[in-house]
């Protein structure tokens, strides 16, 4: 089984970090993973994305031409990747920031107020963790415990106090995602 997902949005939204947490979760389950980021112009506000592949077998391509799933955290990300979504692919769409209509009529769209819910949980900046929670809940590509453990593993000393709220975000996202199946 191979799962692939593109996480996209803007610099400052924690897109790249979200992707690495997902990969590390896969690693905790002894899966093969690849993570490929946008790079070079990661300034705040510009397009940011990463491609994540999680698989039971060695991964041929870290580049995802037609992603099965897109996690779009804002318009910049979604505008760039809507077109390449695989036929009948899934969009996990942050409806707090993406208000426009989805052009891809074949897409399965899961609109969630990701930023808003994150804010209610205490910090809009944990939207990224909430989003990968949703993804794990719906795709079952990695387990909830793995994501939490992976997040705890990467939280630097400076951010230790944020572990609890990040955990809440992942759990909340997972619950929302699970409901959809």
């Amino acid at each position: 089984m191979e799962n692939n997902v593109i996480i996209c949005g803007s610099g400052g939204q924690g897109i790249l970090l979200a992707g690495t947490v997902l990969c590390r979760a896969g690693l905790l389950e002894d899966k093969f993973v690849t993570w490929l980021p946008s790079y070079g112009a990661e300034k705040r506000g510009g397009l940011s994305y990463c491609a994540v592949v999680i698989s039971d077998k060695p991964i041929a391509s870290p580049v995802i031409g037609r992603p099965e799933v897109i996690i779009a955290l804002d318009n910049i990300g979604f505008d760039n990747y809507e077109n390449v979504l695989a036929d009948k692919g899934l969009v996990i769409l942050n409806s707090s920031l993406i208000k426009r209509e989805v052009k891809r009529k074949d897409a399965v769209v899961l609109g969630i107020e990701i930023t808003e819910i994150a804010r209610e949980l205490g910090n809009a900046r944990i939207a990224n963790m909430l989003a990968i929670g949703v993804y794990a809940g719906i795709s079952k590509s990695v387990k909830l415990e793995s994501i939490i453990a992976a997040m705890e593993g990467v939280a630097s000393e400076k951010y230790k106090e944020l572990v609890a709220v990040n955990k809440k975000a992942i759990e909340k996202g997972y619950e929302l995602g699970k409901k959809e199946k």
Partner: peptide, 10 residues
């Protein structure tokens, strides 16, 4: 190349 340099793998 840049892709292999930037990507992460176990």
């Amino acid at each position: 190349d840049g892709i292999l340099g930037q990507m992460m793998e176990a």
